[in-house]
């Protein structure tokens, strides 16, 4: 017999309309439909959500923290992207 185990799914829950889906955790299920049903029982027993997304974990591509330097550091010296970089006279209001 096949010894195929239920794959891992990542669970995202929208706690109420107007908010984004947020990562809640993961679980095992045979397919997407079962992942949704299990996610409902595991992660929303107390009205924590109004919508659930499930994504099989293997389909997520994640950045590698070892490359955080080249990925994120270039943003650090670009102060001109922030409003406070620009000097304006005090008389100018609401800008």
């Amino acid at each position: 017999m096949s010894k195929k185990h239920w794959p891992l799914w990542e669970i995202f829950v929208r706690s109420k309309n107007g908010l984004e889906h947020r990562h809640f955790g993961s679980l095992h299920a045979a397919d997407a439909e079962m992942a949704l049903e299990n996610a409902r029982d595991v992660y929303t027993r107390r009205n924590e959500g109004v919508s659930i997304w499930v994504v099989e974990s293997k389909n997520i591509t994640a950045s590698n923290p070892e490359h955080n330097g080249e990925l994120f550091e270039p943003a650090q010296d670009k102060v001109y992207r922030h409003p406070t970089f620009y000097d304006l006279p005090d008389e100018v209001k609401h800008m």
């Binding site: 185990h5 891992l8 679980l27 029982d41 595991v42």
Partner: peptide, 24 residues
């Protein structure tokens, strides 16, 4: 409900543990 929570707690913790590269 309490016992179901315990199953849930076990599952939260197993899935957190799996992020360290060990399988269920």
């Amino acid at each position: 409900a309490k016992i179901q929570d315990e199953a849930g707690h076990g599952l939260y913790l197993y899935s957190a543990c799996e992020t360290l590269g060990v399988s269920r």
